[in-house]
Design a protein around this nucleic acid. Structure first.
Length: 389
RNA sequence: GUCCCCAUCGUCUAGCCUGGCCUAGGACACCGGCCUUUCACGUCGGCAACAGGGGUUCAAAUCCCCUUGGGGACGCCA
């Protein structure tokens, strides 16, 4: 600040907050720009000392000439700002603490920052900063003002639009690489239009000069889709590692089946609120048969249901363990014996085992579970049927 | 209010700089078909946009101007 003061780029201002406030309101009332009136610009040393002796501490203002500042921006191009819209602005407060616009310049210049990349909303701060760079003789960095991300209502994205912090997304089960990939596609796109990109691909393709100028609305739906895509396509081992923190591993069921779990999760793509939904689905298993809903009960009330389940157990008992082929064999035998087919056959088995009408493919369910477990579950269902049918 | 930025399907965008190849391409969402004896996934098809008006030009989504619309900034906040 000494340099700026000495060279006449800045001066001390003894005006009080109240004075300034009043002046501002007056100007606004007259429909004019609220610009500092330079009252303190020409104070003599004597006057300053007098004010100081009264205990008034000055703030320091940057003296702004009436001209047009041209900001060169990689994304926006050359932007012209008349300085008379902001006037002489404060650089240091009376307590000696520098103001943001001043501090960033000093900071960045000292650290030899080459590129200042930030949100669009900082564009109008930039001319002030450029002025300071120039006064101090610093090299002006390259600026790149990225368009803002808007909420679904097209206003600046904020808390009231829902989850906006990385941790919230993480807690909800969004994979970091999916979020990264999605965010990357806002106001930018790969030259070939490819949308699913690894971090490495993005880094090698990304160029500031093909970032779009217009703001982007955050689309939670597309993020969701992309996260699902990642969940489905990432290597299974890696996926399991990612999924485990979201599951209640203390539970016996999960302990017992954790090795087969990845296949199951891999197949649960329905209404993925994501990983957390997989957890819900598993809970349906766990809480069975308390989870029987009307739809499931209806299936169990079918006249053939009892037969189907009983014979399913019988047939299954003939085998050591169940796999896809055996599953087919069993279901066709049960069909022959009971005469039940279609929904009456498969839905009954589904409900008998899982207690619900929804879930992964039946053959997958059957191969996921162990034979004894299936039998136990169906027997449970048969017991339940005693009481409700 | 003043200044600045922006403007292609509902949303993210390609194309715009270097006008004709645009019958405006892709993705999400949505709607249908297929697959699956559930739901999803997958797959095939469909709906859907150059904000409006003036120019310039043989030719405009592309270049220029105006209007409208949206966003942001106007602090001794960061």
């Amino acid at each position: 600040t000494d340099i700026l003061l000495e060279k006449g780029y800045a001066y001390e201002c003894y005006c009080s907050k109240y004075e300034l406030e009043a002046a501002k309101e007056k100007a606004l009332a007259r429909g004019e720009q609220p610009i500092y009136n330079r009252k303190c610009l020409h104070l003599s040393e004597a006057e300053k000392n007098e004010l100081k002796s009264k205990g008034i501490k000055p703030s320091i203002r940057f003296k702004v000439d009436d001209k047009i500042v041209v900001v060169k921006d990689i994304i926006k191009g050359e932007v012209h700002f008349p300085t008379n819209v902001f006037g002489d602005f404060v650089i240091v407060r009376p307590d000696g603490v520098p103001v943001y616009n001043f501090a960033v310049v000093i900071d960045d210049a000292l650290m030899k920052i080459s590129h200042v990349i930030r949100g669009d909303d900082h564009l109008s701060n930039t001319p002030k900063q450029v002025l300071i760079y120039e006064a101090l003789g610093f090299d002006i960095p390259q600026f790149a003002h990225i368009p803002m991300i808007l909420g679904p209502d097209h206003s600046k994205l904020s808390k009231r639009h829902g989850d906006t912090s990385l941790n919230q997304f993480k807690e909800k089960g969004y994979l970091p690489e999916a979020l990264f990939n999605y965010l990357t596609l806002l106001s930018w796109s790969a030259p070939d239009g490819k949308e699913i990109l690894t971090k490495e691909e993005t880094i090698s393709l990304f160029r500031l000069d093909n970032v779009s100028k217009s703001p982007a609305v955050f689309d939670f739906g597309k993020l969701k889709w992309m996260n699902g895509y990642y969940i489905r396509n990432l290597p299974k081992d890696y996926l399991t590692e990612r999924v485990v923190p979201f599951l209640d591993l203390n539970d016996n069921f999960l302990k017992k089946y954790s090795d087969r779990l990845k296949d199951m999760i891999y197949s649960i793509k329905d209404k993925i609120e994501l990983l957390t939904d997989a957890n819900d689905w598993i809970k349906i298993y766990q809480s069975y048969p308390d989870s029987l809903d009307n739809e499931a009960l209806e299936i169990l009330r079918l006249p053939t249901s009892r037969d189907v389940l009983t014979h399913f157990i019988n047939e299954l008992s003939k085998f050591q363990e169940i796999d896809t082929d055996i599953y087919k064999e069993i279901t066709s035998s049960v069909q022959k014996i009971t005469g039940a087919k279609g929904k009456a056959l498969f839905m009954t088995i589904r409900v008998g085992i899982t207690g619900t009408t929804k879930g992964p493919d039946l053959d997958k369910i059957c191969t996921l579970l162990y034979k004894d477990d299936i039998i136990a579950r169906i027997e449970k269902t048969l017991n339940v049927m005693e009481s409700i049918c």
